[in-house]
Amino acid sequence: MSAEALATSATQTNAWEPKIIAFCCNWCSYGGADSAGMGRFQQPASARIIRVMCSGRIDPLHVFNAFLEGADAVLVTGCHIGDCHYVNGNDKTKIKYKYLENVVHELGIEKERLQLNWISASEGEKFANFIRDVTAQIKKLGPSPLKPEGVA
């Protein structure tokens, strides 16, 4: 079976669709998501991308917000280290991410639910694989413990 078909059938066997929020920087990882589409790399329809100009814009508060609104996973993505369009935004992201990881862990959220990945504008396949992998991991884990009642 092709990877595409696998992804499709995987989503069919388990009807629950996790809610994934992916923060992408405009210049690299958002472009990576675009390339994924352009290359027709199929991926489960579980993720919603929130575009920011640079991963450095991502405030830990936004991540908490996402979890509190019922996200089953939050992805922090940006350019590869050294490639940030704004010199070093992603270095700052890395630092913030360390802190975030700790807090989120303390809140009792599994580590799979918060992930960091550097994806360049040409790495479409990588982006699609990332979404596919995260979706599979989260499906195993089930809904987030922080999910407010009434949110699917």
Partner: peptide
């Protein structure tokens, strides 16, 4: 398009 219909062509 890129993030939706092209990425979920068969769904």
């Amino acid at each position: 398009r890129e993030h939706c219909t092209w990425a979920h062509m068969h769904e």
